[in-house]
Design a protein around this nucleic acid. Structure first.
Lengths: 216, 216
DNA sequence: TTTATAAAGTTGACGGTGTTAACTTAATGC
DNA sequence: GCATTAAGTTAACACCGTCAACTTTATAAA
């Protein structure tokens, strides 16, 4: 009959070990340095053993990406935990997000890495859940700030949180890609971005008069 | 004596041929599909010949990345060309930038791809120039809009153009990475982002009162 | 307890890759 | 014409992802 000599916990533990080794390899050598051979060498098993837990390298990388989302989600959660004031939480969240991205740029870049031609990244429910949860932290804080009256919004909180998220990610991404070539640094741009978005979001009528983008 | 049987133009032409083939391979198979073997197979030469023009695959990919920047720079230049009004130019630029990113997501992602561990991306002057020029288009339009009085700014035009660039890139990047999982789409977020940034940038006093980000 | 069974792991192999070295070809300056 | 040297070719090495065949080993059934 069915045997299942390893319990679900044991299987999960083995997966974690593999991912630990893979993340370690990735962080000091990029994606090219992640190989089943090196992973299994670190773990002391044969180079084919990890295939029991990850059917392909792409599946392994997809799991790594989900890990990266969990990592930044936890960074944000830990950052907002000590605060009660919603605005202070929003500030702490943005700060933690950007700090995390700058401190571990490779791991950060992993989140936004959809260069594979296959659509495994679209079909992985584990990755999708990790994405949703990490964005969910931001959405919850913005919603709370809105509900408490501390943050007036011209749009709904969900849209606003998308703007904050995109703005923060845009700055981190440009910084990581070495895009600030004309003297501006992320240290001065981040507060400006946050305050500019906040100011713009609080005054819809101003936005309306200056909207020039065609929606086609 | 020195021979140089190929003229500089011929060398440049050969490089372009190689990059054409490499870009074609990249666009329908990702980075893994780009190989010296396949490139030389397309070109009809031996698999080692391209090494005369690109010392390594990383150098080839770096040149590809510079091409991606030149591509989006041209897309922006062509978009603003028919307009005279600075605000219309800014609108057309944002529209072209985002449209380009959505139409060719893989090529777009190539621009912000610094996952290699080596620092060749930092040292390539060709890539640095391409980065600077593409951002320069945005900066010039924002500066012109500011100078003409059509766009009032609470900060300098260079900072403002960085915010626009980061905001647009953030949205495109999130879209390409499949990040909009809660019902929001880029079509509605882009106009909101633009108008919000414009509104926020025009009213510094509002920004000042709501600034909560620590500058350390 | 013995034994059949299937999970877990190993080895070997295939085709593909980046890269380098040794080699061949061909064009130019003298 | 000839030596020189750029340009290109072939062979080889060490990796890599992946899979098939094999071995080990723990358990369910007898």
């Amino acid at each position: 009959m069915a045997r299942q000599t390893f319990s679900a916990d044991q299987v999960e533990s083995r997966r974690e070990q593999i991912l630990d080794a893979a993340m370690q390899l990735f962080e000091d050598g990029g994606l090219a340095s992640v190989s089943f051979r090196k992973v299994s060498s670190i773990l002391g098993c044969s180079y084919s053993a990890p295939y029991r837990y990850f059917a392909s390298k792409e599946e392994l990388v997809t799991a790594l990406r989900a890990r990266a989302y969990r990592w930044i989600e936890r960074a944000m959660l830990e950052a907002i935990a000590p605060h009660d004031d919603p605005l202070a939480q929003l500030n702490a969240l943005a700060d933690a997000y950007i700090r995390a991205g700058l401190e571990r740029p490779t791991r950060y870049a992993l989140m936004f890495f959809e260069l594979q031609s296959s659509d495994l990244g679209q079909r992985s429910i584990e990755l999708a859940a990790a994405k949703r949860d990490s964005l969910g932290v931001c959405t919850r804080v913005v919603t709370a700030a809105h509900a408490s009256g501390a943050l007036r919004l011209s749009t709904d909180p969900l849209t606003a949180s998308h703007l904050f998220w995109a703005g923060a990610h845009g700055l981190v991404s440009l910084q990581v890609a070495g895009q600030f070539v004309m003297g501006r640094t992320i240290d001065t741009l981040v507060p400006t971005m946050i305050s500019t978005l906040m100011a713009g979001l609080q005054h819809p009528e101003l936005a309306a008069t200056t909207t020039v983008h065609k929606t086609d």
